[in-house]
């Protein structure tokens, strides 16, 4: 069976490296982008099966990347897991109002992250997206 590919968009190099290690231990192929702009480029270049997006990034943050991907017909089917910052709730209105787009990610996981919980969420998203296709 072909390996599933996950795109991880995370500006913190250490956090990205650690997350990559967790996902690779579960036999996922992982591509990493270190900012929002790079994330959008790699979404096109890598054609991932799932995207994990950090919310707190300089320049273009995770919500904006999410909104852009979800507004694009070629990417909107890709499940997105948002990594929210430590101690921050999910704002639901900011981008929906300012940009007239929906920022609904498919799931959210707050930092600090437990490795097994991350894996569970990822597997769950793959299960759901598989169910939708059939």
């Amino acid at each position: 069976m072909e390996k599933k590919k996950i795109l991880l968009v995370e500006d913190d190099v250490d956090f990205a490296e650690a997350t990559k290690l967790i996902l690779e231990s579960k036999s996922y192929e992982v591509a990493v982008a270190h900012d929002g702009q790079d994330g959008l480029k790699k979404a096109q270049a890598e054609q991932p099966n799932l995207i994990i997006l950090d919310v707190m990034m300089p320049e273009m943050d995770g919500y904006e990347v999410c909104a852009k991907l979800k507004a694009d017909p070629s990417y909107k089917h890709i499940p997105i897991l948002l990594l929210t910052a430590v101690g921050e709730a999910i704002p639901t209105t900011k981008y929906t109002k300012e940009m007239g787009m929906r920022t609904e990610a498919d799931d959210y996981i707050p930092k600090p992250v437990e490795p097994m919980e991350l894996v569970e969420r990822v597997e769950n998203l793959f299960r759901i997206s598989k169910g939708e296709k059939t």
Binding site: F15, S25, P112, E114, P115, M116
Partner: peptide, 20 residues
């Protein structure tokens, strides 16, 4: 402090989970 704490916590968890 948030970012380094999140990273080190995740790194510690990885070691504890035997992933390294």
């Amino acid at each position: 402090l948030k970012s380094p704490l999140s990273s080190t916590l995740l790194q510690a968890s990885i070691l504890l989970n035997g992933l390294a």
